[in-house]
Computed example of a mutant assay.
Amino acid sequence: MVVFRYIYSAYSLLMFSLLMVIFSPFILIPLFVSPRGSKTAFFFVRLWDNFWSFMVGIRYRIHGKEHIDRLQPYIYIFNHRSYLDAPVIPMAIPQDIRALGKKELAKIPVFGLLVSRLAVWVDRKDPKSREKSIGQLKNFLHKGHSIIVAPEGTRNDTGYALLPFYTGAFRLAVETQVPIIPMAVIGADKLLPKGTLLMRPGTIHIYFSSPIYPDKAENTLAVETLKEKCFNRLEAMILTHE
């Protein structure tokens, strides 16, 4: 069984890298040619994702998509437990999105270049970096793009459903009056746990909540209230479906 997982994991990584090289021109060129190229780019991101998932035996089951108005920008938040959360996002969310990611990911060859066109990098230890990233995300929201944030800030390998949330996503929601959609990713950590590159095939379930709207009062209390409400909603979704 262990030997099979090593072979399968090596095969999965090889397929991921090979497909990334094949699809990268189709993703990057539209993004460089026009600011409106993101729709074309995301078509090829999802195609790459579909090919890879099919070839390695990972399936997705999406629940609650009816809560999403495709013409409305949202701030999506999710529970982060696995590197497999990355392919989940474009497969599950039926919109062009921008992500907040750790700056270390930008150093990965080819992948870093690709994602840099669709993400905002942040050093969570640097207050200036965090503030700059909030400004960039706000600009994306004003342009009508949805964004996705892992409010825990890192992958969670504890026994708790969630780690404490950072405040940035909720301050952003209050300042822009953009609703938040909690998104529970269930099962990704069973296929690829934190701390290992050994994968196995299987099914990942994604559950969307109805949107949570921020209070119109732009103050610290509104931010904290929204953060608590979103934490409780996402925690309940995880505990219900795990």
Rank of each mutant, 00 (worst) to 15 (best):
F111A: 13
R81G: 00
F42S: 03
N79H: 13
N79V: 11
I212H: 09
N50M: 14
A10S: 14
K216W: 07
W48Y: 14
L105Q: 00
K65I: 13
G195R: 11
E175Y: 01
L197V: 15
K194W: 02
I68S: 04
T154K: 09
A92K: 04
P193Q: 10
L71G: 05
V178T: 14
V120A: 07
K143C: 11
R61P: 00
L19F: 07
K190E: 10
S24E: 12
S82M: 02
L100P: 06
Y8C: 10
S34V: 09
V223C: 10
A41N: 03
V120D: 04
M91I: 01
H63C: 09
D69N: 14
D49R: 11
N50P: 05
I148Q: 00
E235M: 01
I93V: 09
T40L: 14
P182W: 00
G187I: 10
N232Q: 07
K194E: 04
I147T: 01
R70P: 05
F165V: 08
F78C: 15
E218H: 09
D123K: 10
L239G: 04
G195I: 11
V56M: 07
K194C: 01
R171L: 10
L47N: 09
G101T: 13
I22K: 04
M183H: 02
V115T: 12
T40G: 01
M20F: 03
L84C: 05
K125I: 05
L197K: 13
L141Q: 04
E66H: 02
E235H: 01
G195T: 08
M55Q: 02
L113S: 07
K39H: 08
R124N: 13
E218W: 01
I62Q: 04
H145I: 00
L47P: 06
D96A: 02
